[in-house]
Design a binder for these strands. Sequence first.
DNA 1: CTCAGTATGAATGGTAAA
DNA 2: TTTACCATTCATACTGAG
Length: 594
Amino acid sequence: MDWVSDNDEKDSDNFSWDTDENDKESPANSPEKALEAGPSQPSLYSHFIGMGFHRDMVEKAIKENGEGNVETILETLLTYSAIGSNTLSEHEDVLECEDAPERNPVGCSVTSDEDFFYDDLLDSDDSLDEDFKEGLPKKDQKLLTLVDMGFSPEEAAAAIDRCGVDSSVLELADSIHAAQMAEEPDGTGWGYSRPRFEAAEGSSYCSARKKRRLMEEKRRLKRSCLSQRRGDYVKRSSMDFEDAPMVIPKPMIGFGLPYEKCITRRTLPEAAIGPPYFYYENVALAPKGVWDTISRFLYDIEPEFVDSKHFCAAARKRAYIHNLPLENRFPLLPIPAKTIQEVLPVTKRWWPKWDHRTQLNCLQTCIASAKLTDRIRMALENSSDPPTPRVQEYVLAECRKWNLVWVGHHKLAPLEPDEVEMLLGFPNNHTRGGGISRTDRYKSLGNSFQVDTVAYHLSVLKRMFPNGINLLSLFSGIGGAEVAIQKLGINLNLVVSVEKSKINRNIVRSWWEETRQKGDLIDLDDVQQLNGDRLESLIKRYGGFDLVIGGSPCNNLAGSNRHTRDGLEGQHSSLFYDYFRILDLVKCIMGQSS
DNA sequence: CTCAGTATGAATGGTAAA
DNA sequence: TTTACCATTCATACTGAG
């Protein structure tokens, strides 16, 4: 359910908006690129201001890091924000304060300590020189940075011991704060979070003008909502922030499985209650702290951890945060078989006794190469029958790693795209045709929902909306949400679908036509297009959204990413903040009109 | 340019032994 | 309680053919 590749051309939407069509900027014109082209202080300055950072912070961060390194400036700003952003409002005029939508949504109380940190950050000119630091071991560098930031050497050292020398300065600062809070029985909780900057790299092509307009819109819309919410959060006890880190329940069955005993009641925080309903999805096994952060943004709702192996023959460990009721869920029929041998009967004939797998591992975006399967074939040919334990071990490890199935004597193969479609609950040939390549099918499917799992959670909507729903679907991918809702027999009166990949948009649109949908399908290619204006006009025209659904990009969270598993702040995964931004805007706009 | 093929670990959590 | 070992994982980057 997310973004697939960067190589999709921008095309015009099928829906023509009344404004703003021409100030879409190409990535080449992004502020980021402009920076790389040559140093220009005003542009750099306004770039970060545009992201919602305070001007004093930006000035200081640029001074400290030099103009050249955007990356380190950003890191510095994030660090400042994590430590001191909550005090910002104390130093700023009201307008600016409300104007900073990217700031921590959990408005927090202010302690004198934090004031101290912030003042110190702004005023101290006596920090150690960076050249000197570079010559030191990593641990000492971090230690000095933390001391520079106003922490005591003891605190800093303890934090490095706790979190490890490879932790970011931000994490270390966070840890020290947590420790301080724990020591202080009456300490006021502070809502740790990085500022919600929309413009991590992935979204930085939003023009400054657009951003300003968006901010104006937000300021207008959010003034009342924000003050209300801040009030709510300040009331919360510091306990909320000292909770043990998120633990993934075992077995991973969420609030319950079909035809089994389920949890049917829960208490949602006031701020979480709809309309609209919302449903957010991402990988369960994200780096530490990611789900804590996501949950905190999504109104403190506890994630529902579910492994789709309970719904189909392949594992898919995912977490879902939603505000849907839990009573009277029902599954899609027919219930899919849950073993490989049942689902792929042709494999049964060749399946050796010593391969005890009955289910597949997670369906991913890449498949095993022919070379690998041939190596395995050779290994089996050259072994005895049954193969030696050593060969068995090797073969089984590769089978599990690459989800291989038996298609002949000594012959293993990856799943076909059709089979992946079937396992994920999509109609046959859902991703086939329209010029899509085989690799792209795997990629789009690997990023998708498991339809039966999602449909089970969404089934409660059927009774509530007998006349159908208006759906806002973000990071739609190949339309897992739309397919699930359609299979549940819920009419789709309106679907606003945001998906970066043109290939995926085509898939959804042809599905829309094949299933003879009566409603309106509006597809957009960029979440940034959904600003306050557009949402307001859509909501006015169609009477609001009943469900906001989406699974934001997991690229930087997924375990299989060897290169850029950067967490929630990663280039793609930071689009989560756009999910939150849009959901919050929808809530505010709909809350106002009712 | 697209497409297919290929090599490329580490973070995380579980379990059992020390 | 600590340590070691094991299994799993919505991926990225590069290459070469067409």
